[in-house]
């Protein structure tokens, strides 16, 4: 029986990716997260959601640029980990930070643009997490599934905007993620352009013959 190459890759990513979340769950109640544990948990879950989402978006560009195929095999795990952290981020905010006071939460989501965009990003990730299974790829058909999952780019951009608006003064870190995203967009854009030219060339040749 031939096992898939790198059978350890996805389990390792899952375990390693969830380890910090487990750590937070242990450290928080023990008082090991510093004077403002809620803030620390919010910052960490939010940061990891953005990092993992960006990493999932880097899989295809890595294949295009370096011809690596293994990143494609961990894309789904990265995306689901990103969703897990985004959902945890929201739960820490709603339950611990706001004490589940619905009025205050709705006011935040409606009136504070930085929370509006963060919440929108999370909402965009929900259908992507739900349709992440092979069965859903079949049900939707690959082209439609692929179009739907381009929402991940929108969610990542909103995530960066959320980060930028949250910071009081120093934008270095959020802009770093903006730069990485821009780079990924550039690779995808260049690839799309190359494909269109190739198609045009083929069409021109077949028209000439």
């Amino acid at each position: 029986m031939a096992s898939p190459p790198h059978p350890w890759l996805n389990p390792a990513l899952t375990v390693g990716g969830l380890a910090p979340l487990m750590m937070l769950a242990v450290q928080g109640p023990r008082g090991d997260l510093g004077p403002n544990a809620v803030e620390a948990a919010l910052n960490q879950t939010g940061l990891f959601a953005l990092v993992l989402l960006t990493a999932s978006l880097a899989c295809t560009p890595l294949r295009l640029v370096f011809k690596w195929t293994w990143p494609a095999r961990i894309r789904r795990t990265l995306g689901l980990l990103a969703f897990t952290y985004a959902a945890s981020h929201f739960l820490v905010y709603a339950v611990l930070d706001q004490g589940l006071k619905l009025g205050a939460i709705l006011e935040d989501i409606g009136k504070r643009p930085f929370i509006t965009v963060g919440f929108t990003a999370l909402m965009l990730l929900v259908p992507l997490a739900v349709t992440s299974t092979n069965a859903w790829v079949r049900r939707l058909g690959f082209p439609r599934w692929q179009r739907l999952h381009r929402l991940a780019y929108v969610a990542a951009v909103l995530g960066v905007v959320h980060f930028v608006w949250r910071v009081k003064k120093d934008l270095t870190e959020p802009l770093l993620y903006a730069a990485v995203l821009a780079l990924l967009f550039a690779v995808r854009g260049a690839e799309a352009m190359r494909k269109r030219r190739a198609r045009a060339a083929v069409a021109a040749r077949s028209a000439a013959s």
């Binding site: 890759l9 390792a12 990513l13 390693g16 380890a19 910090p20 510093g34 960490q44 940061l47 990891f48």
Partner: peptide
């Protein structure tokens, strides 16, 4: 090794909070 590297990488990115 991979699990430790992933966890360690995330830890380094988020360590300033904790």
């Amino acid at each position: 090794g991979t699990a430790a590297a992933v966890a360690g990488g995330l830890y380094l990115l988020g360590r300033k909070q904790t």
